[in-house]
């Protein structure tokens, strides 16, 4: 009798303990589901990206503020490899030899 009573009490105690754990488990499952959904939806992606801005002068290998890097859309090379032309007050300048070769060979320096 005593034994039976003790076993019954133990079972009730275990049941109560298990019942207490259910909300914790649900919370864990919910958290995992939320994390999974978040990863899927890209909610945390920003954590993996750099926010540091590049130095554009270094990127272009720019000579200075009075030269323009000439980008050729037919060329998919890197910006640093492009040639640079003089800029004065927003007007671009090119050497006469290449002007004659590329645009019109009728110019003549006397």
């Amino acid at each position: 009798m005593d034994n039976q009573r003790m076993m019954y009490r133990r079972r009730r105690r275990r049941k109560r303990r298990l019942q207490k754990l259910i909300p914790v488990g649900v919370a864990i499952v919910l958290i995992v589901a939320i994390i999974f959904a978040g990863v899927k939806a890209g909610w945390f992606e920003s954590l993996f990206y750099s926010f540091e801005e590049a130095d554009l002068y270094a990127h272009f290998g720019a000579i200075g503020d009075d030269y323009a890097v000439i980008i050729d859309d037919k060329d998919n090379g890197d910006d640093k490899e492009a040639r640079q032309l003089k800029v004065i007050d927003g007007v671009m300048y090119q050497d006469l030899d290449s002007i004659k070769e590329e645009y019109n060979d009728r110019f003549y320096w006397d």
């Binding site: 554009l56 002068y57 272009f60 720019a62 503020d65 009075d66 030269y67 323009a68 890097v69 000439i70 980008i71 050729d72 859309d73 910006d79 492009a82 032309l85 800029v87 927003g90 671009m92 002007i99 645009y103 019109n104 009728r106 110019f107």
Partner: peptide
């Protein structure tokens, strides 16, 4: 005297770049 145009970007603290 030639059929060309160009676009110039940058300036004001950014390097100039252009397309001819």
């Amino acid at each position: 005297y030639a059929d060309i145009s160009y676009e110039l970007y940058g300036g004001n603290g950014e390097p100039y770049r252009a397309r001819i």
